[in-house]
């Protein structure tokens, strides 16, 4: 997602923290975050182009072979270097500290928290599991109304921006409040299944990746070939998908 998407996911998640999580996150957040996880959820995007962090770039995606509409960890996450591998890795780093305070390796737990929060966001953006051949839609040039862009940016930013302008009085916080209300009422029966992980796992990103490539094939790539102008029809039919992914994302991160 873009900055607004990550901010929304982390803001929603904050509302579902249990007491121990509130305490632990506050301890781990950098000073400049002002106690807000949402303030630092884009940090991995801010640094990924810096020379010393360039290796993190591949952790924002999983590489689905072209036209395959399913996800396989062994095929799509070579050497664990992908968004699902990163979620497992940073979950284990944070666990190693909370389960056994005498852990030998001292990870940077502040970075682990910011990476985990960001990648939990990215794995829910369908085109972050998009096809390797078109770089998850980055190479699919389209128009968003009158603006030239690419399909990946439509899903990272444009759908959220248009929703904010059209329905939420250009206010991200009003959009977030609307998602929080939908979680309380419309999706309340779904929240328990969104929260749970099979087999007592602490984190379970693989099904999230499978959902995303399924949504990418059904919604993102459909009727969006190179050179297409995407307008109201695409926006109105895809906005519910994006809003549900952001809300689900916040629940699962918390």
């Amino acid at each position: 997602w873009g900055d607004d998407g990550h901010y929304a996911v982390c803001k929603i998640a904050q509302g579902y923290f249990e007491e121990e999580t509130v305490v632990a996150v506050k301890k781990l957040l950098p000073e400049y975050a002002g106690g807000e996880l949402a303030a630092v959820c884009s940090w991995p995007d801010d640094i990924k182009k810096l020379p010393q962090w360039r290796w993190t770039g591949a952790l924002h995606f999983a590489d689905t072979p072209d036209f395959k509409c399913n996800y396989e960890y062994s095929r799509d996450c070579p050497k664990d270097v992908c968004v699902t591998g990163a979620i497992f890795n940073y979950t284990n780093q944070l666990l190693s500290a909370s389960e056994n305070s005498h852990s030998i390796v001292h990870y940077n737990l502040t970075e682990a928290l910011m990476f985990l929060s960001h990648y939990m966001g990215d794995i829910h953006q369908p085109l972050h599991e998009g096809f390797l051949g078109d770089l998850g839609g980055n190479r699919v040039k389209v128009n968003w109304y009158s603006q030239e862009t690419n399909l990946h940016r439509v899903w990272d930013d444009m759908i959220i921006d248009s929703a904010r302008e059209t329905y939420y009085n250009s206010s991200l916080s009003i959009m977030i409040q609307s998602l929080q209300a939908k979680l309380k009422y419309g999706w309340s029966n779904d929240v328990p299944s969104w929260k749970s992980c099979p087999l007592n796992q602490k984190a379970c990103p693989n099904p999230y990746a499978s959902e995303s490539i399924d949504l990418a094939c059904k919604y993102a790539y459909t009727n969006a070939t190179v050179g297409t102008t995407l307008g109201d029809y695409y926006f109105l039919s895809r906005l519910p998908v994006v809003e549900k992914r952001l809300a689900q994302d916040g629940i699962r991160l918390a």
């Binding site: 999580t21 305490v23 996150v25 944070l94 992980c197 602490k202 991160l253 918390a254």
Partner: peptide, 16 residues
């Protein structure tokens, strides 16, 4: 739910 599961994990008893 992921952060809640991580931070609610009880510390293992230090091995004797």
């Amino acid at each position: 739910a992921t952060l809640n599961r991580i931070f609610s994990a009880k510390p293992k008893l230090a091995r004797a």
